[in-house]
Amino acid sequence: MSAAAAVWLVLALALVAANLPFVNERLFVVGPLRRPSKALGWRLLELLSLGALVVLIGMTLEARIGQRHPQGWEFYAVMVCLFFTFAFPGFVWRYLRRHHPR
């Protein structure tokens, strides 16, 4: 896999993983179904866990392509901000859109 393809793969995974906690009602995607709805705390915990998983996948791909570069705190701060930005559409869909009764 080329470096450019790995970057796009990690970005696509991050976009999907950031919105996943907001579009399903299961704990960590495969856990028990929560009714009536998961609390925001569970969603944030899932968001941070999936963010860590995406970073691990990115580090693994980087190691397979070549030498893995050490990262400072700045990298992780930017990653968290980017992950929260990617999660914005899911947050809006879950909490800010108007729900019409059926």
Rank of each mutant, 00 (worst) to 15 (best):
F28H: 02
S37W: 13
L44Y: 10
P70A: 11
N19S: 03
R35Q: 08
N24T: 09
P21M: 09
F84P: 02
L48S: 06
L50V: 02
E74S: 12
G90N: 10
A87N: 01
F75L: 08
Y95R: 04
M79P: 00
G31V: 06
F83I: 01
H100W: 04
A3E: 13
N19E: 02
T60A: 15
V78R: 11
Y95Q: 05
L27R: 10
A4D: 15
G51L: 10
P32N: 07
F75Q: 07
G90H: 03
R34T: 13
R102G: 02
L48N: 01
H99A: 14
W73M: 15
L40E: 08
L13N: 05
M59N: 05
P70N: 10
G51M: 15
A14R: 10
R43M: 14
V55S: 08
A14C: 05
V10R: 01
L44C: 15
V54D: 03
R68C: 05
F28N: 02
A3F: 09
R98V: 04
A17D: 04
T60D: 14
M79N: 06
Q71P: 00
G58H: 03
G41D: 08
M79E: 12
V30F: 15
I65S: 14
S37H: 12
M59R: 07
M1G: 08
R43V: 11
V10F: 01
A17T: 03
E62Q: 15
L53S: 07
L13G: 07
T60H: 06
F22V: 11
F28W: 13
V55D: 12
M1K: 06
R43T: 03
L40M: 12
V55G: 00
L50R: 02
N24V: 05
W73E: 14
W73C: 05
R64A: 15
F22K: 08
F75S: 03
E74D: 14
R34F: 07
G58Q: 11
P101E: 05
A87C: 08
F84W: 12
S49C: 14
R26Y: 11
L61D: 09
R94S: 00
G58S: 01
L61Y: 13
M59Y: 00
G31S: 04
F28Q: 08
Y76S: 11
M1T: 07
L48Q: 05
L33G: 00
W93N: 01
A6S: 14
R35D: 10
A5M: 06
A77M: 12
R102K: 08
L40C: 06
W8D: 10
R98W: 05
P89F: 12
V23D: 00
V30L: 06
E25I: 00
G51K: 06
A77N: 09
W93T: 03
L27I: 11
L13S: 05
R34L: 14
A4P: 04
L13V: 09
A87K: 01
A6F: 09
H100A: 06
L53H: 02
L53K: 00
L13Q: 02
Y76M: 08
C81R: 09
E25W: 02
S49W: 06
Y95H: 13
L47C: 04
E46P: 13
E25F: 00
